[in-house]
Design a protein around this nucleic acid. Structure first.
Length: 434
RNA sequence: GGAGGAAUACCCAAGUGGUUGAAGGGUCCGGUCUUGAAAACCGGUAGGUCACGAAAGUGGCGCCUGGGUUCGAAUCCCAGUUCCUCCGCCA
């Protein structure tokens, strides 16, 4: 959500930005909202004057009553009644205009950073960095569900019975590996100066509507029946929701936070064959980074954030690359963003394991996150990024650490979290599987 | 979940329909006094946000939130949220 003042003062800049994002259909909205804004301010100025009159006259009535001036008071009452009548329509108009303006402002995209490459869609995203040797093995790598089942570590059939498609049981060493990755990720971020958080896993509807559009909400969020509660789709929801309509002290910045949570997503819509198994599930767990900082610091934080993810994957011997989102692929709220992708030896391509975003002040404006400065308040900048999100991450992990005999290596940093174990062996008898 | 009580500004707190333009303290800032400090005394302390205005400034909204009653609401009514006390239940 951009500042409407920008539309008043520099509509051409806003239009240029829309063109850069190949959303020409939104161009008329700029003039439309400018006109609505003009009407709204006229109505508000008029309304404020009337409300002022009402306040003044009502006060006078009080004095008249005190002095016993009955008749004058009755006259004045009628005057205020007339004002109220006039305000009735005007206030409705103010409300309608304000709603319309907000609706349009929500879809006008944030001004992208000058460094963002211009391109129509994700095919024009730009690789900015690559680490590790993308291994092409001589033998065929099985589908990840087959690898995990051979380790007696995954039971999708039972999960389908208990909970439906999109759920899973992780078992034995594989379940432990899953937890180890999250624990390691937590410590990894703590060591880099982030503060560890465990947030609420359910949030109220006003927080939900603050952090996402109605459409996103419909497609993603699970609602608790009979309660004003939704299961979070990512800990960013409760982490950034914490700052909703809050003013933070300048000297307390930056907030560099890392949060753990399970994430629940409806994942409405059809998905391809490559998304079977653990690619796209209704429930996963995630270690996340959230930063709230001063505007001048956000770009520096942006670079730090995505590099954290890269370093994390490198420390587990997983080849990764960073792909910058081009203008057309950038979500409307974002100033700049990139995806961190891990190598899949089986598919012999990279796939997304995390996404890093600088939202500038757009999210803060939408949520009312302000900084109390010496010379007045101003909106904060917000950023977020994935550290790691298993079980999807397990796919790249086991594919890259798979031995020809089907066992899976545990890289050094993870071994302490696995009780010193250096590999997960294929089992002869699958005792965990019913 | 049940029964009571509460929510006012940075903090404490008064306030049952109209000179409340939210009393009074405290904190904080400035001053007097002092070698310096403390104390005492004097003065200043709603902050935010929106609109109008070149500016000075003017006005709207703000007493947990959202509705309502009224000429007028911190105050009355309805719904909700959070906190406290007690009871019940529970890792």
């Amino acid at each position: 959500m951009i500042d409407i003042k920008l539309i008043r003062e520099n509509p051409e800049l806003v239009k240029e930005n829309i063109k850069k994002k190949f959303q020409d259909e939104k161009l008329p909205l700029v003039d439309e909202v400018a006109q609505l804004d003009k009407e709204f301010r006229e109505a508000k100025t008029k309304g404020d004057a009337l409300r002022g009159d009402r306040n003044r006259i009502s006060k006078e009535i009080g004095k008249m009553m005190g002095q016993g001036l009955k008749e004058e008071a009755e006259n004045a009452k009628q005057q205020v009644k007339d004002i109220d009548q006039e305000l009735l329509d005007l206030e409705e108009k103010e409300g309608v205009l304000a709603d319309k303006i907000k609706q349009i402002m929500m879809v006008i995209p944030n001004i992208i950073d000058p460094s963002v490459p211009i391109g129509k869609d994700d095919s024009e995203n730009v690789e900015i960095e690559r680490f590790g040797e993308p291994v092409v093995p001589e033998y065929e790598i099985p589908y990840h569900t087959d690898i995990l089942e051979a380790l007696d570590g995954l039971d999708l059939d039972s999960a389908r019975n208990t909970s439906g498609n999109g759920f899973y049981y992780l078992m034995g060493d594989v379940a432990r590996l899953h937890s180890s990755i999250l624990s390691y990720a937590r410590d990894f971020m703590i060591n880099r100066g982030f503060t560890y958080f465990i947030p609420p896993f359910m949030i109220h509807s006003d927080v939900v509507t603050g952090v996402m559009s109605f459409k996103e909400m419909e497609n993603m969020m699970y609602k608790i029946e009979g309660e004003d509660l939704y299961l979070i789709g990512t800990s960013e929801h409760s982490m950034i929701g914490r700052f909703l309509n809050r003013t933070v002290k300048e000297e307390n910045l930056p907030y560099a936070l890392t949060s753990y949570s399970p994430c629940f997503r409806k994942e409405v819509g059809a998905h391809g064959i490559e998304e079977r198994g653990l690619y796209r599930v209704h429930q996963f767990e995630k270690q996340e980074m959230v930063v709230v900082c001063k505007p001048e610091d956000s770009m520096e934080w942006y670079d730090k954030l995505w590099k954290n993810s890269v370093d994390f994957f490198r420390s587990l011997d997983i080849p990764v690359r960073t792909l910058e989102c081009c203008s057309g692929d950038l979500a409307d709220l974002k100033v700049k963003s990139c995806d961190v992708e891990a190598w899949s030896p089986r598919q012999q391509k990279y796939f997304e394991v995390g996404s890093c975003s600088n939202l500038g002040d757009a999210q803060a404006r939408r949520l009312g996150i302000r900084i109390k400065g010496k010379d007045g308040n101003y909106f904060a900048h917000t950023l977020n990024n994935t550290v790691v999100a298993p079980p999807r991450m397990l796919i790249s992990f086991i594919e890259n650490n798979l031995e020809p005999d089907g066992s899976v290596r545990i890289p050094g940093p993870l071994q302490p979290y696995m009780g010193g174990q250096t590999k997960i062996e294929v089992v002869k008898e699958r005792k965990n599987t019913i």
